[in-house]
Simulated scan of single mutants.
Amino acid sequence: MYSGLHHVQLALPAGEEDRARAFFVGVLGMTEIDKPPVLAVRGGAWFRAALEIHLGVEDDFRPAHKAHPGILVDDLDAVAERLHEAGHHVTPDRDFPGFRRFYAHDPFGNRLEFLEPEDG
Rank of each mutant, 00 (worst) to 15 (best):
L72D: 11
H88W: 01
R111I: 01
L112G: 05
R82V: 03
E17V: 12
I71K: 09
H84E: 04
L12Q: 10
P107S: 01
H88Q: 02
H65R: 15
P117R: 15
P69Y: 13
V90M: 02
E85I: 00
Q9E: 12
L10N: 07
A22H: 01
A50K: 15
R48M: 05
R19E: 05
E52R: 14
S3V: 15
A50E: 15
R48E: 09
R62V: 09
L83Y: 01
L5Q: 11
Y103V: 03
H84D: 02
G56W: 05
I71C: 06
D106Q: 02
G15C: 10
W46Q: 08
P63D: 07
D59R: 14
I71N: 07
F24S: 01
L51W: 11
G26L: 02
R42K: 13
L5F: 13
H65F: 07
F96C: 08
K35P: 01
P69V: 12
D93H: 10
L28W: 02
L55W: 04
A40T: 05
D34T: 03
P69T: 13
E52A: 09
H54V: 05
A45T: 05
D119R: 15
M1V: 15
G44T: 11
T91G: 00
F24C: 06
H88D: 00
V27A: 00
E52N: 13
P107T: 03
P63L: 09
A104Y: 02
E32R: 13
R19Y: 00
L112P: 03
H65S: 08
D18A: 13
L51S: 08
F99K: 12
G44M: 09
F114K: 10
F114D: 05
I33D: 02
F108P: 04
P36R: 14
D95L: 10
D93K: 14
P117H: 14
A86V: 00
R19F: 00
